[in-house]
Design a protein around this nucleic acid. Structure first.
Lengths: 122, 122
DNA sequence: CCGCATCCGTTACGATACTG
DNA sequence: CAGTATCGTAACGGATGCGG
């Protein structure tokens, strides 16, 4: 019970912007979802599951709900029947690009020794 | 049991540098610890608890152990008696500065509506 | 005192089965 | 295909213990 599923249920730990960013995005999956949307533009529910990390459907549903309520992702054609509708980044989500780039660059440089198979994408 | 406490116990979900960065730093506390070290230079164990987010001691100990084994933080004078020795960032930890900056800037801009008390630090 | 380790209740995760 | 329900497991978080 009582998982964080929308913006109103977030408990802001402090007024620090870094801690506040982590209150929203500080988990192992949210930025992977954002990365998928940068890579593919739009993504249907089941397409997210095709990424190599293999997110499970309940976590995906919970994160999409939270990211939507924060205004980071949105439905394409939300009024249509559920079949084949997709998610995409909002302008707020697109603004996360430099966060992903800096995290990716750091990882390539500083995790390579422990994880030699890591690839370069920037 | 079986919490992630050192580099060898990390399960790399994929070869993606973003996902791999999140395998290490994808939680609510690790980057808060890094932020404290940027702000104060060095920090003793109990000083971390003085930050407004209020990390609990068991989480702090586990994260410091993991961050040390990854090479992001290190002890100052690790050979001395435990009393008053401190932690600081390694060069790998210092390289996280731009990740923190970009996350902080994003939060100030895109979370302000939901969290008006958020402050500006960049 | 300070730096942790341990205990234990609560919450979140994660795999899978299931429903419209 | 888009999600939800269930249920076992792992992580969190507060309290407390204990050695240096």
């Amino acid at each position: 019970m009582s998982m964080v599923i929308d913006a109103n249920s977030i408990e802001w730990r402090s007024v620090c912007p870094i801690a506040s960013g982590l209150d929203v995005l500080g988990d192992k999956w949210s930025l992977v979802i954002v990365r998928d949307l940068f890579e593919h533009g739009t993504r249907t529910y089941s397409e997210f599951g095709e990424s190599p990390e293999g997110i499970s459907t309940n976590i995906l549903a919970a994160r999409l709900k939270l990211l939507s309520s924060i205004g980071i992702v949105e439905h394409v054609e939300p009024d249509r029947a559920s079949r084949n509708n997709a998610y995409q980044l909002t302008s707020s989500g697109l603004a996360l690009r430099s966060v992903l780039e800096e995290l990716g660059k750091w990882s390539q440089t500083h995790l390579k020794a422990m994880h030699p198979d890591i690839v370069s994408i920037f």
